[in-house]
């Protein structure tokens, strides 16, 4: 067991736990909001994380035995805790500045076409930029442009929105057979693609839509039907014949119509159990399903808040400002206006 202190809260976790998971455990136990944001890490998949760099944290004390601080920020999703480790996340202004830099990089070539993007409202990049980014952009050059592409008849790929988190590649590698899609080219030309436009063709392929943190991979059976915040999420299940599919899903209703079917997601925005394409794309009638009840959506997205005022993370920062000895943090204009703060 290892004792680790993150943002002044101490927890004892099993050896081999990552800093990120220790922070999530603290949040689950104490109701705090100290877990770093993640864009590429996915606890349900193997070997994810480390790419996006949004979950970086400062390690100010390596361990009890070797108290030296780590020289650079580390990716909390890939760094395991040591006994006596001290980590600073929201309590380090330099780190928040560095993370704002990462957010800026992620948005650099992102088209910011949220008004016409189906992901808007449940987009992790939206959440990330509202909560950790700065206003405006300093990038004054044309953005990269790639023609949107079809991955089979059910999935749309819009590469312009992609942040290259590699989650979909890992899904195809780990839960489907015979991966035919991956990353082409390198550097700022890198693209997710099926080689020679070959369609993703297997009965679990739809899960790439759920793991995509942005609007790069969207459900063609749902595209442009409704904004997500106008739909009502309901948990339901059916007796699915597919051996790998649990049949436990989330239905998104508008009136009596099921507009789309997705997997259920936990408070970290991660899929609880992957579902098959038949459940996702073909069972669009409420009579196909046993309804369990309204879904509880705990991810801090617009779909459960209906507004972007002061995010919980920023509230957390505000509560922690007293630790910072008067260091000024710029949360954006009006952010600390009491009228904007959630009660």
């Amino acid at each position: 067991m290892a004792k680790v202190t993150i943002d002044d809260i101490t927890i004892v976790v099993p050896d081999g736990t990552t800093i990120l998971h220790a922070a999530r455990m603290i949040d689950e136990q104490h109701g705090t909001n100290i877990a770093p944001p993640t864009m590429c890490y996915y606890s349900k998949l193997k070997a994810t994380g480390g790419y996006c760099r949004t979950c970086i944290v400062n390690v100010t004390q390596g361990s009890e035995k070797d108290p030296r601080p780590m020289p650079k920020p580390v990716a909390s999703c890939r760094t395991t805790v040591m006994d006596g480790m001290v980590v600073k996340n929201n309590t380090s202004p330099e780190l928040l500045e560095a993370r704002a830099g990462v957010v800026e990089f992620l948005l650099l070539n992102h088209p910011l076409d949220c008004p016409v993007c189906d992901q808007a409202g449940e987009c992790h990049l939206q959440d990330l930029s509202y909560e950790n980014g700065k206003e405006g952009s300093r990038f004054e050059f044309p953005k990269r442009e790639v023609e949107p592409d079809d991955l089979g008849d059910k999935i749309k790929l819009n590469m312009n929105r992609c942040i290259l988190c590699y989650r979909c590649v890992k899904v195809c590698d780990q839960i489907t057979d015979g991966r035919v899609h991956g990353v082409l080219y390198r550097g700022d030309h890198a693209e997710i693609s099926t080689y020679i436009e070959k369609a993703i063709d297997n009965d679990f392929s739809g899960n790439v839509i759920d793991v995509c943190p942005v609007g790069a991979l969207t459900d063609k059976t749902f595209r442009f039907k409704s904004r997500v915040w106008f739909t009502k999420p309901v948990d339901a299940h059916r007796n699915c014949a597919h051996e790998k599919c649990s049949g436990k899903v989330r239905l998104w209703f508008k009136g009596d119509d099921v507009l789309r079917v997705t997997a259920r997601k936990d408070r970290w925005g991660e899929v609880e159990e992957f579902i098959c394409n038949e459940c996702r794309f073909d069972k669009k009638s409420k009579h196909d399903w046993e309804i369990e009840g309204p879904s509880i959506i705990s991810h801090h997205s617009v779909i459960n808040q209906n507004h972007y005022t002061l995010g919980k993370l920023q509230l957390g920062i505000k509560n922690q400002i007293k630790h910072l000895n008067g260091t000024k943090i710029d949360l954006g204009e009006g952010a600390l206006n009491p009228n904007n703060i959630e009660k």
Partner: peptide, 17 residues
Amino acid sequence: RHESCGQCSPCREGTAW
């Protein structure tokens, strides 16, 4: 810029910028 592998965002986007 040309030689960045494109895995992590600071290098992928930052070198081009």
